[in-house]
Design a protein around this nucleic acid. Structure first.
Lengths: 243, 243
DNA sequence: CGGTCCGTTGAGTTTAATCAAGAAACGTGG
DNA sequence: CCACGTTTCTTGATTAAACTCAACGGACCG
């Protein structure tokens, strides 16, 4: 059965039928997780590669003070680093946000796939480079954007990623994140997130309610976010054509 | 001639003599750059892989407002993503900080090396994973650490990286960064950086003067930084032993 | 030796955090 | 299907952190 992972990678490189079959087989080991379950914790020995097939997850770190910083969201189709096995210890934790189906690819299988299929390799590396670009974009956000811009920017990112997933263009998308989680991701307090959201709502730009994001003024949102459409966009479109 | 790049990779995997020779040959194309020269700019077509042999460089992004955010420092031995060529467009710029010798490895040569030597591949992937860990650490810093902690944390990071480079343990290291550059890296204003540095100096923890960092109270610095020794450390030590 | 960065400091303002408390939504077991 | 406990959301008042604006001395460079 074709899954989100295969669908995503197909968009990043031209996969042969064989490749698709290989990928499907490699992700047949699926486990169900409830919301808020750690898949792996900081300090653990890295295990297999995790692939999110449905639901949301996130990477995060806990600081000595007890505060938490989320460093990335993992949506269906996303996976953790292919060569994670090289390292001897996890430097962050991964946790489900909603209930989720997670496939695990043993390290040996992963390496075998990379050896056999250059196309799969290219797709996975492309995915990783996009992830890195996203990390850098987050650093830029945290460093140089105001809280309003930061919220707006994250919403643009998530909206585009979700849209890429479903292939549908609609004003509203499901966004299963609490304000507390947003705070942890954006380096702000929940209270302030709440006020920022109210501001954006009252400005008629976007609103979040009952776990769903509705963008009422797309151009306005991109504007406040200072969102660079290139950053996820061009990339996702054209990688295929290079080879 | 053995260079910083080879030295770094040797620390990350067991390289055969052949591998070392290959790496040395691949980095024989060296160009000299003055300080503050862009090696490549956001929007450019990615070219060859850049390797810093001497001097410092950084990756950065400019925002619409004109402010700048540095997303990472590149020290001797550091290189940009191996598969950078997969993407069609740079999402950030790379600039020298000091005058620097930069080797360029053409894409074809890079791919050839990865094909031929699994050891080189492992070393390069390990390097990349460390870079990613550093990106995540920066996000954590920007999101959840106070300005004092943030400055202290970056100093810990740079000190450790420099120490790893030279192999020497000394209280002071060369740090060719202006307060303005620190501000761009830490998401703060130069004025505030200056005040924070004064605070740390007056507390007898560390001081920066004439482009050199002197750590007067290492334990104290690690303490204020909330620095997790594991994050660069364990990693750099033990990767080799896994294989 | 003049110009241009760079570092330093003070005063006042803005932004976001903290503290506190109540309302709404959600989930679960009876 | 309701009652109850828990999380999540919301709002106000106050405090703390960092930015802005402004000015000047010092270092470095050609």
């Amino acid at each position: 059965m074709i899954n989100a992972f295969v669908r995503k990678l197909s968009g990043l490189a031209d996969l042969a039928e064989d490749d698709v079959a290989t990928l499907i087989a490699s992700t047949s080991q699926v486990r169900q997780f409830a919301a808020r379950r750690d898949l792996i914790r900081e300090g653990d020995r890295p295990g297999p590669v995790f692939v999110v097939l449905s639901g949301w997850a996130c990477r995060y770190k806990i600081l000595p003070s007890g505060t938490r910083q989320v460093t990335s969201f993992m949506l269906p189709g996303d996976s953790c680093d292919l060569h994670i096995g090289i390292l001897d210890e996890m430097d962050h934790s991964i946790q489900t946000i909603t209930k989720a189906s997670i496939a695990t690819i043993p390290r040996a299988v992963m390496e075998d796939m990379l050896d056999r299929s250059p196309a799969i390799g290219r797709a996975l590396y492309a995915a990783q480079l996009i992830d890195e670009a996203t990390l850098r974009a987050w650093i830029v956000s945290m460093g140089r954007r105001s809280s309003v811009e930061r919220v707006a920017h994250l919403m643009c990112e998530l909206y585009l990623r979700l849209q890429g997933l479903t292939g549908m263009v609609s004003a509203s998308v499901e966004l299963p994140v609490s304000q507390l989680l947003l705070a942890d991701a954006l380096g702000m307090t929940p209270v302030h997130i709440n006020r920022v959201l109210r501001g954006l709502r009252e400005a008629g730009v976007m609103e979040i309610s009952r776990r769903s994001l509705r963008i009422t003024d797309p151009a306005g949102l991109v504007q406040v976010a200072g969102f660079d459409e290139n950053y996820l966009h061009r990339r996702l479109k054209t990688i295929k054509s290079i080879y």
